[in-house]
Amino acid sequence: MKALMSLGALIGVAGLLLLGGMTFDIVPSTTIRLVEGYMPMQLLFEVGCYVMGFAGLSYILNAMGIGIPRFWQGIGFWAFFLLYLKYRVYPPIPFSVRAMYGTVSLVAVFMWVSANEEDWNKFKQPIMNVLDAQTGMNKLLRYAYLVILPILIGGFSYNAMMPKSEEPIELRTVHPAPPASTKVHGKTYTLQTSQNPYRVNPEGKYDQEYTNANIVEQGMGRLMKPNANPWDENSQGYLKYVREGGEIFFQNCHFCHGDNLNGRGLHAFAFNPIPANFTDPGTIAQLQETFIFWRVSKGGIGLPNEGFPWASVMPPWEQHLTVDEIWKVILFEYWHTGYYPRTWD
């Protein structure tokens, strides 16, 4: 038990030091990066580590006879969690969401301190002591609270009432409902039945299985399969079209969607909302190829009315590319991210 608790304490202290160091720029703030896509699991794991660390610490301090009262433990952990959400998570989450998490964690802390009568009494003892003011110290504290609380609350309300120019929060429809069909370069494509004409095996037959087997590998780097190089001169069918799609992508799309298709292109920093990140499992991995075909062809200006706020510079690519080129780019995007397009069956 003791060894286990010590281990927990060790992990916790190491983690806390690292976190503090990163927040105050003592060690590079990139020492432990939050990786997109894995972030929720990473955060849960980190918080788990800290809970373990705190439990271990409190056990050891108790064993050494300098235990921290339950009251301060509860408040301390809650404050830690709030600070963690504010300073650790990047990109920052809005205050309203933080407030929600804060409330939930407050309830959790309350449940913990009031798990049984004895604990609850222990928890509220310090409050009662100050109210009763039996000792000189508590008397002093009581007067201090009497003065400081009104000043603090008055100050906060003054701050809240000062007119501020904070950016209004904007909601956004991520994937608007697609139309049944779309007309591109004079031809009508029914979204339910259309297929990517370049998703073919070397013999030229439509072959979902073959193409899915030749996309890049999932995992760090997302590298191509060792024997499926689109730049191989002998490559036919799917891989040849992937290369052609890539050429179009790197002449037209990478400016916004980025060299790694993660929405961090050359011009991306200027736009809001930022361009779509195709490596995020929430974008093209969730959609059919025909949906992408519609979005690519019609661009931001072709968004339906519910697709507000329309603050999109996505070009209607039918103005710049042929239908074949659009299909090839889509093929490339799925190849490069290693995702399978959704299908109707």
């Binding site: 780097g221 590298l223 060792p226 730049w231 050429e247 790197f250 002449q251 060299d259 790694n260």
Partner: peptide, 23 residues
């Protein structure tokens, strides 16, 4: 393998800075 997945698109097959994106 890394080069032909990520870099070739701008730096080109021969590394001469003449990939499809270069111009």
């Amino acid at each position: 393998r890394v080069y032909f997945t990520k870099c070739v698109w701008c730096h080109g097959v021969d590394g001469a800075g003449e990939g499809p994106g270069a111009d």
